[in-house]
Amino acid sequence: MSAATLDAKRRGFDYKKFLANNGALVGLVVLCLALFIATPDFLTGRNLLNIGIQVSTVAVLAFGMTFVIVAGGIDLSVGSVAALSAMVSGWFFVSAGLPGWLALLGGLAAGLLAGVVNGLASAYGKLPSFIATLAMLSVARGLTLVISDGRPIKTSPEVSFLGGNLGPVPMPIVILVIAALVASFLLNRTVVGRSMYAVGGNAEAARLSGLPVKRILVIVFGLAGLFAALAGVLLAGRLDSAQPQAATGYELDAIAAVVIGGASLAGGLGRISGTFVGALVLVVIRNGLNLLNVTSFWQQVVIGVVIALAVGIDVLRRKTRSS
């Protein structure tokens, strides 16, 4: 016998497989075409920039979430952590009188810290990540309210700059592109990134191969916290103030974007490019429904259906993969 690779007999384009693997992208294209036909307001420069700004927050949050979901966990705290980070940064600037750039870093550090706590609790404390981050969701939101006393805090010029424009291009879009590149580099090129797939795919096999599973989980949640902080700062920069109720419920958008983008909630699968498309799908749907004057109540219904569809595609994908 030999290590003969089996010869390819039937080549040819497998539509079913393509659709299953790129369902979100196909969906996005169809969606854009439909909106283009339905309303003249869709394909305008202003609207597209608007979409870009809105997608930046969701996508940056979702990039962090991608790490967690690939590693087989879930992070429900990212929305609260985003708000907390922005608030901490505002507090450093306004109340502690730190220089703006230092206040900005302080805010990011707060997000990182919250994420590391999530990671420690789930890796060493052996709490399911669902529970650990549910607790953090509440703790971080509570701290946000404590710090701000329930009132918005003005942001530093540095933070506002991140929400502003760089020439004709909105800064959030610039940040989004950088965040996407960094996230994708981390996931694809680094040892930690490759380990995330192993840990999410089979934690026991990863451990027995000598991967430091617990340390990896701490890094994963830490990164999710850091990306959440960045999203929180972007959001605050746009409004020129850190709001105590900012980003409420955004964790669900982030999870939805990751799942629509093709990751499996069982862990071990997922790509940053997919998550990016997933975030675009969510935001374009919302944008389109706004343009078509659909009420926000109905929007929630539609988004729910889209998530269900995406998960349905995930099931189909898993079927075609195992057969």
């Binding site: 490759r194 797939y197 192993a198 795919g201 089979n202 026991e204 096999a205 990863a206 027995l208 071990g268 699968l269």
Partner: peptide, 12 residues
Amino acid sequence: GQGLVLDASVNE
């Protein structure tokens, strides 16, 4: 259960 990450490639 303990040896392989089934969804990952042979290479990985």
